[in-house]
Design a protein around this nucleic acid. Structure first.
Length: 297
DNA sequence: GGCCAGGTGATGG
DNA sequence: CCATCACATGGC
């Protein structure tokens, strides 16, 4: 079996990544075991199954069933680094957070956790839109239906591995094709519009990546269905902007309330005030606060 | 059964 | 510019 080792900046904790990746029973885009995760990646025209495991403070990438070229290996490495934010140096975040009443206990408990994102822009946008104003578990239900209806899959060792649907395919749908999966009418329109923008080249992660976060944010806000929350969420999870801050996020508010043990959720103004001491790391702070909401494994 | 969900756009003052 | 409302439906 082919494999390669990826170096990771310390501190890094792969187990923490696995906890995050295992948070929903309904997740269909990767499969975790106690010490590995497998994912089907689209590399060029191929669907390649990869498996990750921590080996001596490195990430070992294996290809359980595929022969891959050097070029493909490089593309997989790039995708894995983006997915798990492996190139980030967390030390400044830990130094900052050690003095913060909200972050200090979380950094202590989850040292080495990285934001886990969506390298694919279409996936990031669609997932954010699905998740607007509904419970996370309902969002996962809809996403599973969407992936199993319109995504591609391979069966390996009796297990199905799925990829997120290509924009090219969704661009051909009418809203009814998503209404059936319990998208709201408007969300169905947003998702199809975005798929069409991506397909015809008007919206591209590669093209946006050379711009500043402020410019990317402005471009995202121009998309119907993308408001401040979604734009910041996508900056954080797709463009790896550690300072992106989805300030109105209810999960963030809940987490702050729990951490402080208060009876009410904080106001936006109060959240802003906490954020002032996180400068440059607002996205990481948010991700760690989200982490506090799903158990202590 | 009522209220809340990892919000957004439209509408009206 | 700010407040309010419809959207859709599951989960608790």
């Amino acid at each position: 079996m082919t494999e390669m080792l990826l170096a990771v900046q310390q501190p890094f904790d792969f187990q923490e990544c696995l906890v995050f990746l295992s948070r929903s029973e309904q997740e269909v885009l990767h499969v975790t075991t106690p010490d590995t995760v497998r994912k089907l990646m689209r590399i060029g025209e191929r669907l390649i199954l990869i498996e990750l495991q921590e080996v001596e403070k490195h990430i070992c990438v294996r290809f359980p069933v595929d022969e891959v070229s050097e070029t493909e290996k490089e593309r997989v490495a790039r995708e894995v680094r983006d997915w798990l934010d492996l190139e980030r140096d967390l030390k400044p975040f830990e130094t900052m957070g050690a003095k913060d009443e909200l972050l200090a206990p979380l950094i202590e408990a989850h040292r080495g956790l990285r934001t886990i994102g969506f390298p694919d822009l279409f996936e990031a946008l669609v997932w954010a839109i699905i998740g607007q104003q509904i419970t996370l578990s309902f969002a996962y239900t809809i996403k599973r239906r969407f992936v199993e209806r319109y995504g591609d899959h391979r069966v390996v060792e009796g297990r199905a591995y799925w990829t997120f649907p290509w924009a090219e395919r969704i661009a051909l749908l009418e809203p009814e094709g998503l209404r059936e999966l319990q998208f709201s009418r408007r969300k169905a329109e947003y998702v199809i519009d975005i798929a069409r923008e991506i397909t015809n080249g008007d919206l591209s992660k590669t093209a946006l990546q050379s711009h500043s976060s402020a410019d990317i944010r402005q471009r995202l806000l121009a998309i119907r269905g993308v408001g401040a929350w979604t734009a910041d969420y996508v900056l954080m999870k797709c463009f790896q902007d550690a300072s992106a801050f989805p300030i109105a996020d209810v999960g963030l508010h809940q987490a702050i309330q729990h951490q402080l043990g208060t009876s009410k959720k904080p106001t936006i103004e109060e959240v802003k005030r906490y954020g002032e001491s996180w400068q440059g790391w607002e996205g990481y702070a948010t991700f760690y606060l989200w982490r506090s909401l799903y158990g202590n494994v």
